[in-house]
Amino acid sequence: MKKGESAITFVFSLIFIVATITIFYALFSLSSLSNSEFRINQINLADIQINLVNYLRTPLQNNENIADLIVSSYYNDDYKKLQEVSGEIFNMVYDKERCPLWNIKGELDDKKFFEYESKFDVRTYTLSPNPRNFIRLFTDKYILPQEHSLDLIFPDNKKAKITLEEGCIHE
């Protein structure tokens, strides 16, 4: 092989190596990005947990709390008071400026038996902190939805899953 050909082969080899590394890097960064977000979000779950536990043990009249109200609402098929109390609490906790998204729902055998949420305009925010999300070109604000669930045991041993989701603004 001539020396000129050797140099060209070397340069093309390097380009090939860089291209290969770039492809592997892209795959690696996509997977590692979601992993790091997952770990960091776990810490914030302790905040939502407090809000959900306190919601369930909020005292009402007659020595009852909201967990009791959920049970009685389910058996009486009357959710009016539950809706009223839930809205009152979460609209007070999550103000529209900082945390415009909240959602509380109850599921029994994977079927929702109640769900209430804030009036949330999804068009105003991006729902991902991913810098590759093209919507971030138009706004720096993004909402990071996080949720936490607790089990609630009914008198007939049915197990309901109560889930609170919140979405606060990050910049």
């Binding site: 306190n54 043990r57 906790v93 103000d95």
Partner: peptide, 8 residues
């Protein structure tokens, strides 16, 4: 950071 807890 700024966070509001619902507390009892």
């Amino acid at each position: 950071t700024n966070y509001t807890y619902y507390i009892l």
